[in-house]
Design a protein around this nucleic acid. Structure first.
Lengths: 170, 170
DNA sequence: AAATAATGGTTGTATATTACAACCATGTCC
DNA sequence: GGACATGGTTGTAATATACAACCATTATTT
């Protein structure tokens, strides 16, 4: 193992550490509002922008286990921001629909996020912006590829398919 | 709010979502070994490379509350990978020292991480590498800066503490 | 058609991460 | 000497998360 390589790995370690901290911050309540967490915002967004989603679709949007989806969505159901519906053609599936109240909340939370996003974007030099997006994607994809043995995912890169069982690397 | 701006924010939202997932994956046990978590690895690293650290120094390395440091370090103490020592000149402070067993574990965990890091680096085109590091830093710094400024419009005033603004560990 | 497997979802249980507040001991400063 | 600051631990609680067991339903195989 070359010395340069060790240095490289060390750099990567700290970068990941900071990434974890940044991720933690972005999920803070302070970023959002209306008592909606980051994950719940993602759920509202998915339901607001796409029709006919069911629980199983959210697993991949959120990249979590199905039991976790159940638990994340519960508060939204209780607050009546989201409704569940049984589909006739498959009695197992639970379809989800955002309610008018949910849409209103979604809009307001989106405003909060807009402020946050604006602040961040304001701190990135204009001519670095495209590079930031591009390379961040490279980095994320590298990690995702590492995470899944079979990276047979759709080109909608948002739909990170990573059930824990596929997480075993190396 | 311009349409382009909305699109921009949306892009950022998903980028952050994916970043959170990536961060989550990087902290998975599978990346490490020897029953050492990511945070604990950072602690071992700090103690292995710097002399005379005390608890308070770790707060900023880990960017967590002091009570969290106490809890993160406890398993390391119990497994005797780390020792605590009282300093004579300040009986409040607890100094920490990595033990020989701790060093050995550190080395082995480092090997695990090296493999992980190698896999990731192998997925990033050679001539993008510098750009990735550079822009990732820009992005992380932007978020960090936002975290110290953005006490946002919050009605629930759970702002970030000073520890957060010391995010910088490199 | 009966048996078996797969899918969708919930609940029980457990763990990790993390914060905040209250508290104690010790230092520092006026 | 008293007020305040610093370092650390413990109590308590919330969130995120997984895995396994389970139930109901649908799909596939024999």
């Amino acid at each position: 193992m070359s010395k340069a390589s060790v240095e490289h790995n060390r750099k990567l370690l700290f970068l990941i550490a900071e990434l974890c901290q940044a991720a933690r911050f972005c999920r803070q309540d302070s970023v959002f509002c209306e008592g909606v967490t980051f994950s719940q915002f993602l759920i509202l967004d998915a339901l607001a922008t796409r029709e006919g989603l069911k629980m199983a679709d959210l697993h991949s949007v959120l990249a979590v286990e199905k039991s976790t989806t159940t638990r994340l969505i519960r508060p939204l159901i209780e607050r009546e921001l989201v409704q569940r519906e049984k589909a006739e053609h498959d009695l197992r599936a639970t379809y989800l629909r955002i309610t008018p109240a949910g849409k209103e909340t979604y809009r307001r939370v989106w405003d909060c996020f807009t402020e946050f996003a604006g602040t961040i974007r304001g701190k990135i030099p204009e001519n670095d912006m495209n590079d930031v997006y591009r390379t961040l994607r490279i980095f994320i994809d590298a990690i995702r590829d590492t995470s899944s043995v079979c990276a047979c995912n759709s080109n909608d890169s948002r739909e990170l398919k990573n059930e824990r069982s596929e997480f075993n690397i190396i």
